[in-house]
Design a binder for these strands. Structure first.
Length: 271
DNA sequence: AGGGTGACCTGTCGGC
DNA sequence: TGCCGACAGGTCACCC
């Protein structure tokens, strides 16, 4: 599921209820992608100071240390007034003085990791190599163009990699490339200054729009109150193989790049 | 160093 | 009805 917009929607939903809350208990189910890196009991008594986001990670600052949350492919976080009976795919509960935060994740690619600080090796292992935030001032057209210009890889897998810009996953990479009129297989270094600028704008536009309407709910994702997102209703190419392009009526195609499906319009994306 | 591949895990869907 | 393969929003460790 969760690309930047879904993680950001989740972050916004957690900030109100959890800021200032005190951790009262921790329950862990089946193992997630990485070990917690601390004794669950040691978190009890700490206060949640706030929730930030870095790429697709949620950073929960505690009165001592922080928790890094990742939703993997199928995770979602929800706040319950009281802790419900755990279901089959509920793998982590943080019971606080202001509700129970529960991670539901059928595929268990998600993770909750404790780190003593953001600069610690535990945190840097996960965050250290990440590219710039697409919705912050550090993401600007000129440096984006330069970064693309020195990579030979196809643009689509490069966007997914997160080394240049973070948070753009499979849905939004396909959509942004459509908006910019760029063929997903085009080598990054062959993208012109003008097209790079268009792609830069498209990435910001598609992510902002998705956040505004609650993200994409394909299979598993829902917000912190269980609500659905609506971006999947307005995708131009993602998951639309064989359907007519909404702009030109040409048939949307699917191909595989780096073992991931890429959707594109052969007519609109010629650059 | 960059770029490609396999692995992790579970559920769902389409075809035979 | 049942089985089997393909595929799903991510990312890391490993090869050349």
């Amino acid at each position: 599921m969760p690309e930047l917009p879904e993680v950001e929607v989740t972050r916004m939903g957690l900030t109100g209820p959890l800021t200032g809350a005190r951790i009262e208990a921790v329950y862990m189910g089946k193992p997630l992608r990485w070990p917690l890196q601390c004794l669950p009991q040691s978190l009890v008594g700490r206060t949640i100071l706030g929730v930030r986001r870095r790429g697709k990670y949620l950073l929960m600052d505690l009165s001592e240390g922080l928790l890094l949350w990742h939703l993997g492919m199928s995770g979602s976080l929800r706040v319950w007034p009281r802790r419900p009976e755990p279901g089959l795919h509920d793998h982590f509960d943080l019971v606080t003085s202001n509700g129970c935060l529960r991670l539901n994740d059928p595929r268990r690619f998600g993770a909750v990791v404790y780190a003593p600080s953001q600069d610690s090796p535990q945190a840097q292992l996960l965050l250290g190599h990440l590219g710039v935030e697409p919705l912050e001032p550090g993401f600007e057209p000129q440096t984006f163009y330069q970064a693309l210009h020195q990579r030979r890889t196809a643009i689509k897998p490069l966007l997914l990699g997160g080394a240049v810009v973070v948070g753009v996953g499979n849905i939004y990479a396909c959509e942004a490339l459509f908006m910019a009129g760029i063929r997903p297989t085009l080598s990054a270094q062959r993208i012109s200054r003008v097209r790079a600028k268009a792609l830069h704008a498209a990435i910001q536009q598609v992510l902002s729009r998705a956040i505004a309407i609650g993200g994409s709910s394909l299979r598993d994702f829902s917000g912190t109150e269980g609500q659905s997102g609506y971006f999947q209703l307005e995708t131009k190419v993602y998951d639309r193989e064989g359907l007519p392009c909404r702009d030109c009526q040409a048939t949307i195609r699917r191909r595989v790049q780096g073992q991931r499906s890429t959707f594109y319009c052969p007519q609109c994306q010629r650059a």
